Simulated assay, not measured.
Amino acid sequence: MKATLASLLGLANGALAAVQGFDISHYQSSVNFAAAYNAGARFVIIKATEGTTYLDPSFSSHYTGATNAGFIRGGYHFAHLDTSSGATQANYFLAHGGGWSGDGITLPGMLDLEGSCVLSASATVAWIKDFSNTYHSKTGVYPLLYTNPSWWSSCTGNSNAFVNTNPLVLARYSSSAGTPPGGWPYYTFWQYNDAYAYGGDSEVFNGDMAGLLRIAKG
């Protein structure tokens, strides 16, 4: 990214205030964005693509609804590491809603990494780098990386290759976030349950609203 992750987040020694948000896909066919905003949520991450053939049918309507309600919003891509290269999938994501501009209301795209380990650890790291570098070359920012500690440890060998470039979206359904994997000193977003009151998964930003706006502005 254009500045260090710590400076973008406004973090020094751990979390500051937290900002509520959530993520959604077509499984949430109808979302009351206004009610979610009134309840305090300020960001939404919306599924856009998967692999190189799947477009989430609700992406456009969700994105429009989130925008109209005043949310900071962004898209995410569900990775299929064994079907095509990281660059190919990054370009597919960019062409179908995953783009970014420093308008202050768009989050960098998120790469969703979960499921079975289908490549070796070194090949997995190389794939993620291919996706990440391609996204960065087209937008000027690095994508968010969504993962859980078990997947990251098993599938990447707990790689620390992305600590200084990619914000971590930590998936851990617990009362506390615990220690982030991969050498990240902190998470940027934490998905802490799959039962958000207005649909989808609950997430929190590790910082205050000013820090969230810095992420959106790059």
Rank of each mutant, 00 (worst) to 15 (best):
A171E: 02
G109L: 01
W152K: 07
A39F: 14
A15Y: 00
A123P: 05
P185Y: 08
S154I: 02
T179L: 00
G157Q: 01
F43A: 12
G207Y: 09
L170F: 04
A90D: 13
R214G: 05
L81D: 00
G109W: 01
T106W: 01
R73Y: 12
S58G: 04
V163Q: 05
Y186R: 09
R42Q: 15
A197F: 13
S116K: 09
D82L: 00
G21P: 03
Y63E: 04
M1T: 13
T83R: 06
N160D: 11
Q89W: 05
R172N: 09
G200Q: 13
G98E: 12
N166T: 11
S7Q: 10
S58M: 11
D103L: 04
P185H: 07
T83Y: 03
G183T: 10
I45D: 02
S153T: 09
T134W: 12
W151I: 10
R73D: 10
G86W: 05
F22N: 03
S174W: 01
Y146S: 14
W152L: 05
L81S: 00
S154G: 02
D82N: 07
P167T: 06
Y186H: 10
L111Q: 08
R42F: 15
K217L: 14
Y198L: 14
H62G: 08
V163W: 05
L8E: 07
R73G: 10
W184E: 05
N206C: 13
G115M: 10
S175I: 02
T53S: 12
G14K: 04
A216S: 15
T156M: 01
D103F: 04
L212N: 09
F189S: 03
G200I: 12
N91W: 04
K129P: 11
T188D: 04
N38M: 14
L55W: 00
M1K: 11
G86D: 08
W127A: 07
H80K: 04
T67Y: 14
L9F: 07
A34L: 14
L119A: 10
G10H: 03
N91P: 03
S25D: 11
S120P: 01
F93A: 09
T147N: 14
Q191H: 08
L170Q: 01
W151V: 08
I128W: 09
L145F: 15
G183L: 08
N68H: 14
S84V: 06
S7W: 02
G109Y: 01
Y37L: 13
Y192P: 07
T134C: 14
V163Y: 08
Y63D: 07
N206K: 11
P57K: 06
I128G: 11
V169L: 10
A39I: 10
M110G: 08
G99W: 04
G200E: 11
I128T: 14
L16I: 01
T52M: 00
Y196L: 10
T52A: 01
A36V: 12
V125I: 15
A18N: 04
S120Y: 02
Y146N: 12
S175Q: 02
R172Q: 07
A90H: 15
L5I: 15
T156E: 03
Y27D: 06
Y63A: 11
A123Q: 15
T156D: 03
A3K: 13
H136E: 15
F43K: 11
D23I: 01
Y146V: 13
Y146K: 14
K217G: 13
G207T: 08
T156K: 01
P108E: 09
V31F: 15
S61W: 06
W184P: 03
